[in-house]
Design a protein around this nucleic acid. Structure first.
Lengths: 250, 250
DNA sequence: GCAAAAGTGTTTCTATTACACCCATGA
DNA sequence: TCATGGGTGTAATAGAAACACTTTTGC
């Protein structure tokens, strides 16, 4: 049957007569804290998977797109201001629809990946109370199929760093090239050659643009570094491919 | 609210009490016929969008994943044998969930991209009766948001040719390097340098493997070409980037 | 012979890699 | 002054691009 193609719902169809599908969003939210990749997880209080960690997420409202639902949930779970959340990078990952992925009922989940600069500890009322940043890789088995979703999200982020300017989404508005390089090193788990990385980034038009004037800033010790902001470009041509065969499984 | 995170559905929830979401799959099926990219479309017989072309697709069955639904619909719409359909490349594109994308009711659609070698004209009973191959770009405005879905699918296929071995999915089991090159040229709408393309493909381990023995085959006139089969590799390292700035908007 | 497509060779150029080296700062 | 990270220079290599040229077929 094809209701859209045939221009009608199946014979005798009534929206309330069928076993309905619930539609949710799940969020894989990444940030970098203290040179480690972290993921936002919530502790489950009830069965199934009581006391397990899970990805934050929730149901779509009746008149809400999945994109809107993802951003709303992101705000609710992190306790961040709407203005801050509005600036986070949010991107659809894929949809998980195995009929048995939730033992309670049929739930189709649209998964999203979100990236942000070193975000604060989640606080405030509501869902954020059970939310916490965990270093990626230390989270143990998650509820439902969230291990799969999280692994897919991580792989996607790693791949997108190669051919997009996504890395700046992990950085604050102004950042040094060293910080940008650490984003790549942290997500990929590989050390990169500093001089070559610098040239590559600066040679890509629109990846970053230098902040005006002589102001400089240091990240502790060492020579103060120049500051940059994210540029207009979204694609990276040619790509910045991750070195193969030296992954250190960070 | 976050029913998964909270371990329960919202207060007083009953699966039949809410306005339910319908979940469908939509298919952007591409093939190459006579050196042109074609897409499989169905003619709508009823309102809304009566007499418009639309992407094939349909509802998920109660105990069916989106992947399974996509492959089932693909078989139904093309009228191809299950064995043939089982070999077609099928890949999730993304999910479209705008609340107003279908004027009749709330429909969340998981879109898929399918690729195959020169597929026959759809025939047989059922939905296939209204299905037809149309050259990509000549389809005019489609029903619902299917123009967006189709454009996204085309862009995705073009991008994946760069860094994956996907092009062989457009080819029959045995093919010449000329046919493989025409896949790239057809999808990208750019002519490629024959010698360089050949070297690139043969230099990528596992992209193609030569068919044994001296057998050769001609595609009409010109020197007979060696035959190849798809190899084991799925990724293309380094990628085969499409030339920029010379797109001929095929 | 001629057109058309396969296949080989070669040269040029660009991009990446792997370094060595100097600079500016905090401790 | 030493450790640390920023920034510049450079030679070697790999890959891409552009193009000439030969081969083998159909007509």
């Amino acid at each position: 049957m094809n209701a859209q193609a045939a221009g009608q719902v199946p014979e005798g169809y009534d929206p309330h007569a069928f076993e309905p599908f619930a539609v949710t969003v799940d969020l894989a939210v990444f940030t970098i804290r203290e040179d480690r990749l972290h993921v936002l997880l919530v502790r489950r209080g009830q069965d199934p998977y009581k006391d397990c960690w899970a990805l934050p997420g929730g149901f779509l409202l009746p008149r809400e797109s999945a994109d809107d639902a993802a951003r709303r949930e992101l705000a609710e779970e992190t306790g961040l201001s709407d203005a801050t959340v509005a600036h986070l990078h949010l991107e659809q990952l894929r949809t998980y629809s195995d009929p048995d992925r939730d033992p309670r009922m049929r739930v189709v989940s649209v998964a999203y990946t979100a990236l942000g600069p070193d975000l604060p500890e989640p606080h405030g009322g509501g869902d954020a109370a059970h939310a916490q940043w965990l270093p990626y890789g230390t989270q143990g088995p998650l509820a439902f199929d969230h291990d799969t979703i999280l692994a897919d999200a991580h792989e996607r982020v790693g791949a997108k760093l190669e051919y997009s300017c996504l890395a700046t989404a992990f950085c604050p508005p102004e950042f040094t090239l060293g910080e940008l390089r650490q984003v790549y090193e942290t997500v990929w788990g590989v050390p990169l050659d500093r001089p070559n990385f610098r040239r590559k980034v600066l040679a890509t038009p629109g990846f970053v643009r230098a902040v005006e004037g002589p102001p400089r800033l240091t990240g502790g010790r060492g020579k103060p570094a120049a500051l940059y902001r994210a540029g207009d470009a979204t694609a990276l041509h040619p790509p910045l491919l991750r070195p193969e065969g030296r992954e250190t499984t960070a």
